[in-house]
Nucleic acid binder design. Structure first.
Length: 873
RNA sequence: GCCCCCGUGGCGGAAUUGGUAGACGCGCUCGACUCAAAAUCGAGUUCCGCAAGGAGUGCCGGUUCGACUCCGGCCGGGGGCACCA
């Protein structure tokens, strides 16, 4: 056996063996228990980065561990291959998005294979492949038939130069990130999925996801944002112009929104409108009503009021960034109209248009109760509106005036006529009951969650399988004509969506009436692609998206691992999609991911030259204990430790590192030190430490392999070492199960330290063999090499995970801490299970204790068996 | 503004239900091997102190025989959401 482990030679050899033998194929038959381990599939951006390496190493350890523990493991990999970067590359580098993407996939697949991940490559998929997105189109049509897809006008960020729609994060200071042109708000007809129909289910389901981080569940809960309250009608007081019939009150029930009210032409002034409140109990504290600048009543009133029209226009200006909103002044415009209080026909309130009322939350209108809402209070003070307390924490404070702070605490109703003396809770119930009985309002629930707009005016995505016919309207593409394949001959020379400009692609006959029609040229949000790929991994027939029974055998994913940046959107959409499939009877799974783990980022120091330029780590060198620029010798300023990014030039490409140290050292480093949920700082010293450890294990194995069993003949068992080994078996298994890889790594270091110190014995030989098996999920190439060199049969990937002997886990002797007044003064050793009296006697006999007690009797002695004795002096 | 998480040696971090704080790694110091270096091995490494001993888990207080752990109040760092009625 060689003195040193040579990863460059061994890695490739074992990777070839695994591939040829199909070692990591999920069989899906037999009666072994199943485990589905999945990491979030990558976007093929060009090359693998350290974040990928960390993510996939974690999943790999778990997958390999489960396989050794007897599971049939599904551990697949694929590519989230649609998206904007491919189109950007097409524009910048004049390459076809498909070509660019597929070449990136080839590169990254090679890089992943170089790391020796135990993946079932036979199930590899790419979302940009018609054999994937064609099935997605079919599923889209299924949801469409089930009424879960609808079309409505919606505002988008429109870049007039690039002629494209921008996501919110692509709008920087009101300008397009690429064109720098002022972004316009445009209304487009877009496709929506009715995720709000599932809001309650999605919220409710979070409570049962006990293997998800609390943080993520909380984020989703906030995102869904359930608010219970009441919706009620305000009638406009007579005296205002009221032309034409009432258009009713705006919205229909539930999450299904009609073609937007905003799209209607401004004609008549409605005679009433609805507001939403979570505090119907404070209804007698009302002092004004306010509507959004986008509200139909505001638009109608502005018709004859140029000052109001100006105000509305002003509201539309200004940024929508968080900082701007926070500092933006709360402004209102008194329309002069008044509304009638629903509980007193003689009481009218002024109607304002206010810049802080959002049209797309609730009903786009509110009533203001300044005494008990801070924003309403600020508004009332500004415009000199009355402030009436209606909730009081105690009877004495009933007439206490409200100062600068609104009172939002508990209490009983005051100044509220028939509600006086009610608790807030009872008052809410009472007001809702009354409103419902009298027909002017009702209890309701409002969600922050909006329906999911899935239309993207982009080329590189899944075509939406719809044809627009002048006579028939939007018509589904018949199933036998799926997939609707993206055209390859496209042109990126002119801005805008190439599908729109394609000479022939969009021209089709209507599937219903045969008349000339036009294909939908929008493509689907790429989050749709990632909402069901884990199902396709589990089952991939050619003629259907998945086979229900086969998919149900694997799902839900037992452990899903990825970045916390997907805590909301991807994970919420995938949860929705899965529930939607269940709703339409395609798949009986409610939650797609049973266990979720969000791993931390890989970070690195940043470096700057004296002139403030960011420097690459390879431009920097340590000389005489300080960092200098390699080329010039100037001193380097060490910046913050940050997530690796091109902008900060602190990216370490994994490939050269793997070439230098081998896959196992890199994998080991990714698991060491930092807890997996926290950030890991890449360092040269760290990878060298990992390399040393790989060689230390190798030396132990080589030592045992070279020794043969004869050398320790006559030596007895090393019981202390046996105990250490079995404690380690238990600890490593538990820590991998808990994804506490840094602790499992520490366990293996400890065992290695013990083995290096232990004299040769049968125990030691067994221990080294067990160490190799315990380390196999983390450093698989080394483990295979050592396993075979030690003369073991078969692959270690198929070897059994060692079992801890319970008898060896029990200590015979324990160390007892001896404290005086809670401070450690001495320790003593006693057989496990020694009774309290004996321990107390032993502790009181301690010389150190006697010295501190100075002959005085202890006041009290606390004995915790097998743990400690605390003497209270 | 609202909600959540985290503060432990020079650094990354360990520490079942409150029960010997600092496992393990990195770094550093000294030593061995070597002509020398690398590699490797051995010893040490929370702070103050020669030692005995004392202090110590962001700060202040509380509960307890006993607090990194529980409670209250501050300070600092990070994250999520955000004119949400």
């Amino acid at each position: 056996m060689a003195a040193r482990f040579n990863p460059l030679e061994a890695d490739a050899r074992w990777q070839k063996v695994w591939e040829e033998q199909g070692t990591f194929h999920a069989s899906g038959d037999g009666d072994r228990p199943r485990a589905y381990v999945l990491e979030m599939f990558p976007y093929p951006s060009g090359r693998i980065h350290m974040g990928h390496v960390r993510n996939y190493t974690m999943g790999d350890v778990l997958a390999r561990y489960r396989r050794m523990a007897g599971f049939d493991v599904l551990h697949p990999m694929g590519w989230d291959a649609f998206g904007m970067p491919a189109e950007n590359a097409a524009m910048e580098k004049k390459v076809h998005p498909g070509e660019w993407t597929r070449s990136n996939i080839d590169t990254m697949r090679r890089q992943l294979k170089r790391l020796g991940f135990a993946l079932d490559w036979s199930r590899e998929l790419a979302t940009c492949d018609p054999s994937y997105y064609g099935h997605e189109q079919a599923l889209f049509l299924d949801l469409h038939e089930a009424g879960l897809v609808y079309r409505k006008q919606s505002e988008v960020n429109w870049d007039p130069v690039d002629m494209t729609v921008l996501a919110n994060e692509q709008v920087i200071d009101g300008r397009g990130w690429r064109s720098n042109a002022l972004v316009e708000r445009r209304k487009l007809s877009q496709w929506f999925l009715r995720i709000t129909d599932f809001a309650d289910e999605l919220l409710d389901g979070l409570g049962r996801l006990d293997q998800w981080p609390d943080k993520v569940r909380l984020m989703q809960e906030n995102w869904i944002g359930k608010s219970q309250g009441m919706r009620f009608r305000f009638d406009l007081a007579p005296g205002e112009k009221q032309e034409g019939p009432s258009t009713g009150s705006g919205r229909t029930e539930g999450g299904s929104e009609p073609e937007s009210v905003r799209a209607e032409p401004v004609e008549a002034l409605p005679s009433s409108f609805e507001v939403f409140t979570t505090r119907p109990d404070t209804i007698f504290g009302a002092s004004f009503a306010a509507i959004s600048p986008d509200h139909p009543i505001a638009l109608a009133l502005a018709e004859g009021n140029s000052a109001l029209a100006d105000f509305i226009a002003e509201c539309k200006q200004g940024g929508t960034t968080a900082a701007e909103l926070e500092t933006a002044e709360k402004k209102g415009f008194d329309t002069g109209a008044r509304v009638i209080h629903p509980l007193d026909p003689d009481w009218t309130l002024p109607l304002y248009v206010a810049n802080f009322v959002l049209m797309d939350y609730g009903t786009g209108a509110i009533f203001g109760c300044p005494a008990h809402d801070q924003r309403d209070l600020d508004f009332a003070r500004k415009y000199g509106l009355p402030v009436t307390r209606v909730v009081s924490p105690s009877p004495e404070e009933a007439d206490e005036p409200i100062g600068d702070e609104a009172y939002s605490g508990p209490g009983r109703l005051v100044n509220s006529r028939f509600l006086d003396g009610f608790t807030a809770e009872d008052a809410i119930r009472e007001v809702i009951a009354r409103a419902e009985a009298e027909g002017w309002g009702e209890g309701t629930t409002v969600w922050r969650l909006r329906d999911w707009g899935v239309s993207r005016q982009r080329y590189w995505g899944t075509p939406i399988p719809i044809v627009h016919c002048g006579a028939c309207g939007p018509v589904a593409v018949p199933r036998d004509r799926l997939p609707v394949v993206l055209p390859e001959d496209i042109d990126f020379e002119t801005p805008g969506n190439p599908l729109d400009r394609h000479p022939t692609w969009s021209k089709v006959d209507c599937p219903d009436c045969g008349a000339p029609a036009r294909r939908e040229t929008d493509t689907l949000d790429t989050f749709v692609d990632s909402s069901w790929y884990f199902i396709r991994f589990a089952s991939q027939p050619a003629d259907a998206p998945f086979d229900r029974a086969e998919a149900e055998r694997w799902l839900p994913v037992d452990q899903y691992i990825g970045g916390v940046e997907h805590a909301i959107l991807h994970l919420l959409y995938a949860r929705f999609w899965t529930r939607a499939l269940r709703h339409i009877g395609k798949l009986d799974v409610d939650e797609p991911f049973k266990g979720l783990f969000t791993q931390g980022m890989v970070t690195h120091e940043t470096y700057r030259s004296p002139d403030g330029r960011w420097l690459n780590p390879d431009e920097v060198e340590k000389r005489d204990g300080r960092l200098v620029v390699l080329a010039t010798g100037e001193s380097v300023e060490t910046g913050r430790i940050e997530k690796m990014s091109k902008a900060k030039k602190n990216v370490i490409d994994p490939t050269p590192i793997v070439d230098q140290y081998g896959a196992d050292a890199v994998r080991w480093f990714m698991l060491s030190d930092s807890p997996p949920e926290r950030d890991l700082e890449w360092s040269e010293a760290g990878i060298q430490g990992s390399w040393r450890f790989v060689q230390r294990i190798w030396r132990l194995a080589a030592d045992e392999a070279g020794r043969g069993s004869s050398t320790w003949l006559g030596a007895g068992d090393d019981v202390a070492l046996d105990r250490k080994v079995h404690r380690t078996i238990a600890a490593v298994g538990a820590n991998i199960e808990a994804l506490a890889f840094n602790k499992a790594v520490a366990n293996l270091y400890e065992l290695t330290n013990s083995l290096e110190k232990a004299p040769a014995s049968p125990s030691r030989s067994r221990a080294v063999e067990i160490l190799i098996r315990l380390a196999a999920p983390m450093v698989p190439h080394l483990a295979e090499e050592a396993w075979s060199a030690m003369g073991q049969e078969g692959l270690i990937a198929h070897a059994e995970w060692p079992t801890a002997d319970p008898a060896l886990l029990v200590e015979e002797e324990v160390t007892i801490a001896v404290q005086v007044n809670g401070k450690l003064r001495d320790t003593l050793t006693a057989p496990k299970g020694t009774d309290k009296e004996t321990l107390e006697k032993m502790a009181l006999a301690s010389e150190k204790v006697l010295r501190i007690l100075e002959g005085k009797p202890p006041r009290k002695v606390i004995v915790v068996p097998d743990r400690l004795v605390n003497i209270v002096a």
